[in-house]
């Protein structure tokens, strides 16, 4: 088990190095940071001094190593636009994005899995057909459109939910949370539905097709032949066997939710990392973009590790695979 984690962590190193290189290349080759920092009027001496100060006169690989050292310490320099440390900016925005993503993912799972099970079990009922139609809408409508429609209905016409922002937040250490105030929770509803809609329909359709597949297997037939209750057969034997692909997709989608919360955050002016990133893109604020890229890569690596560990917990064949070689 421990060896497994270590090997996975070692595999993550080349991934992170590659992303670092790309991220670093943005620094080095996209735009000219010196020109940006100096502004319009400067002397050649000032330019040379700044180049030396920033270490840009050193060879490429030395610069990369320095970049890696700094990145490992969470040091990504100053934002060009806001002139504040990038790490601070990102940390400030992270709670908003993570809370939104977490809520969206929970929503997608809590609604998507039961709907998938239901439509898998009773595939000809009218409710199943209804769910499938809805899911088609969820899969095919672009996120920003869903967001705007929700705002139109619930914020503009009905006026029951806020159309933008995070509401009031409570600070717990450096973390700010919207979970503890009524306005924070209300503000969370529309963006999380918008963000989670696609994943929810995806999970529902995945669970449904996996259920249909699993229900046809011999071990389900055998479970019925042993007289087990429908509940035990459907939720014990069948659902558990659909979990491995569902965990995979959910894990990847969780990464996608966080990384691509950009659109939803823009629509709802949600003060998260996505909004920070989109503003950085607009202003060619390279340090923020580079740091964001690295952070998202790290997130995917961590999520993948967790997914692998969950496989381990769900499927004994993976555990046994290591043991059975010697143990049989």
């Amino acid at each position: 088990m421990f060896a497994f984690i270590v090997s996975r962590l070692l595999q993550a190193i080349p991934v992170m190095l590659t992303v670092s290189l790309i991220s670093f290349s943005m620094f080095a080759y996209v735009g000219d940071p010196v020109a940006i920092m100096l502004g319009q009027d400067y002397t050649e001496a000032q330019r040379a001094a700044l180049v030396r100060e920033l270490g840009l006169d050193r060879p490429f690989y030395v610069q990369f190593v320095v970049f890696l050292q700094n990145a490992a310490q969470g040091e990504f320099g100053l934002s060009y636009r806001l002139a504040r440390p990038v790490a601070d900016l990102i940390l400030e925005r992270m709670p908003a994005t993570l809370e939104l993503s977490f809520t969206a993912a929970c929503l997608a799972l809590v609604v998507g899995v039961p709907m998938g099970v239901y439509t898998g079990l009773y595939r000809d009922s009218w409710l199943s057909r209804f769910f499938l139609t809805i899911s088609l809408i969820g899969v095919s409508l672009p996120t920003f459109l869903i967001g705007i429609l929700l705002i139109l209905v619930f914020a503009v016409i009905l006026g029951v939910l806020p159309s933008f922002g995070r509401g009031e937040t409570v600070a717990i250490g450096w973390w700010t949370t919207g979970f503890l105030t009524a306005s924070g929770l209300k503000a969370l509803i529309l963006p999380s539905i918008t963000l989670g809609m696609f994943q929810m329909t995806l999970i529902m359709r995945l669970v449904r097709s996996e259920m249909l597949e699993v229900l046809r297997t011999d071990y389900i037939k055998f479970a019925r032949a042993r007289g087990l209750s429908n509940r035990a057969v459907h939720f014990g034997h069948a659902l558990k066997n659909t979990l491995v692909p569902v965990i995979t997709i959910t894990g990847l989608q969780l990464g996608a939710i966080i990384a691509f919360a950009i659109v939803t955050e823009t629509v709802f002016q949600w003060p998260g990392m996505g909004l920070l990133f989109i503003q950085a893109v607009a202003n060619a604020d390279i340090p923020i973009m580079a740091a964001y890229l690295l952070l998202i890569a790290l997130l995917f690596v961590v999520i993948n590790l967790i997914v692998d560990l969950l496989y381990y917990a769900v499927d004994p064949r993976l555990r046994g695979g290591l043991r059975a070689a010697g143990g049989r």
Binding site: T217, D218, Y219, K221, F222, A223, R224, A225, R226, G227, L228, H237, K240, N241, V314, D315, P316, R317
Partner: peptide, 20 residues
């Protein structure tokens, strides 16, 4: 009736047991 009064054995033991 199933299991309690009539037991069943299927053809392929590799697929009749729940792997999990």
């Amino acid at each position: 009736v199933r299991g309690k009064q009539i037991g069943a054995i299927f053809q392929d033991p590799l697929t009749t047991l729940n792997p999990l």
